[in-house]
Amino acid sequence: MRKLLLAVTILVMSISAKAQIEAPVKWSYAAKRISATEAVVFLKATIQDGWHIYSQTVKDGGPIKTSFTFAPAKEYALLGKTTEPTPVTKYEKSFSMDVSYFEKTVIFQQKIKLKSANVSIVKGQLEYMTCNNMKCLPPEDIDFSIPLGK
């Protein structure tokens, strides 16, 4: 009976170890006031070796592109679009097209116009998809809340 209980315990432990959720991308955030009326929000993705996330400019028919939605607020307004560095662009057989992506780290930036001196937090949501040379993980939505320093 003890051997059976031990075997079942080992089996359960090995199954739960395989069922752990993969999380190859970690997000971090920062903001910097550049004047009394402007700030820049930084959204940084740190990506495990072998994985990548996609640019904001991926064409339709390809993978889910990285996108940012900032919560509407009376205290600030977006200045232009969210910017990104130059991505790697390569043909991916799985999508039958050229796609642009980032490996290791990438920092996206969004300028904002401060309409009030009382702006303390910028909120929103980002969506991204991550893949390696074997598979893609389902797209993920992450809420963010970024404090603005003084």
Rank of each mutant, 00 (worst) to 15 (best):
P72R: 01
P72H: 00
P72D: 07
A73M: 04
A73T: 11
K74I: 12
K74L: 08
K74W: 04
E75H: 03
E75L: 13
E75N: 08
E75R: 06
A77T: 15
A77W: 01
A77N: 11
A77I: 10
A77P: 03
A77H: 08
L78S: 10
L78T: 12
L79E: 13
L79Y: 05
L79R: 07
G80A: 05
G80P: 11
G80H: 02
G80C: 08
G80N: 01
K81D: 13
K81H: 10
K81S: 12
K81G: 09
K81N: 14
K81I: 15
T82Q: 02
T82I: 12
T82V: 14
T82H: 02
T83F: 07
T83Y: 01
T83E: 06
P85V: 08
P85W: 00
T86L: 02
T86N: 01
T86R: 00
T86W: 00
T86D: 05
T86G: 00
T86A: 05
P87T: 03
P87A: 04
V88G: 00
V88N: 07
V88Y: 04
V88W: 00
V88E: 07
T89R: 02
T89Q: 01
K90L: 14
K90Q: 14
K90R: 10
K90A: 13
Y91C: 08
E92W: 13
E92I: 12
E92S: 11
K93G: 11
K93R: 05
K93D: 14
K93M: 11
K93W: 02
S94Y: 05
S94N: 09
S94E: 13
F95A: 10
F95C: 09
S96H: 06
M97N: 05
M97V: 05
D98P: 07
V99D: 04
V99N: 09
V99F: 09
V99T: 14
V99W: 07
S100D: 11
S100G: 13
S100F: 07
Y101A: 13
Y101N: 03
F102K: 05
F102Y: 15
F102L: 09
F102A: 06
F102S: 06
E103Y: 04
E103N: 12
T105E: 13
T105D: 10
V106G: 07
V106L: 04
V106S: 03
V106W: 00
V106D: 04
V106K: 00
I107W: 02
I107F: 02
I107E: 12
I107C: 05
F108Q: 00
F108W: 03
F108L: 13
F108D: 02
Q110Y: 08
Q110L: 07
K111H: 15
K111C: 13
K111W: 10
K111Y: 13
K111E: 14
I112D: 03
I112M: 11
I112S: 04
I112C: 06
I112A: 10
K113W: 05
K113C: 09
L114V: 07
L114A: 06
L114K: 03
K115R: 14
S116Q: 05
S116Y: 03
S116R: 00
S116A: 09
S116H: 01
A117V: 11
A117N: 11
A117Y: 00
A117Q: 06
N118K: 08
N118G: 10
N118I: 09
V119M: 04
S120R: 03
I121W: 01
I121L: 06
I121F: 09
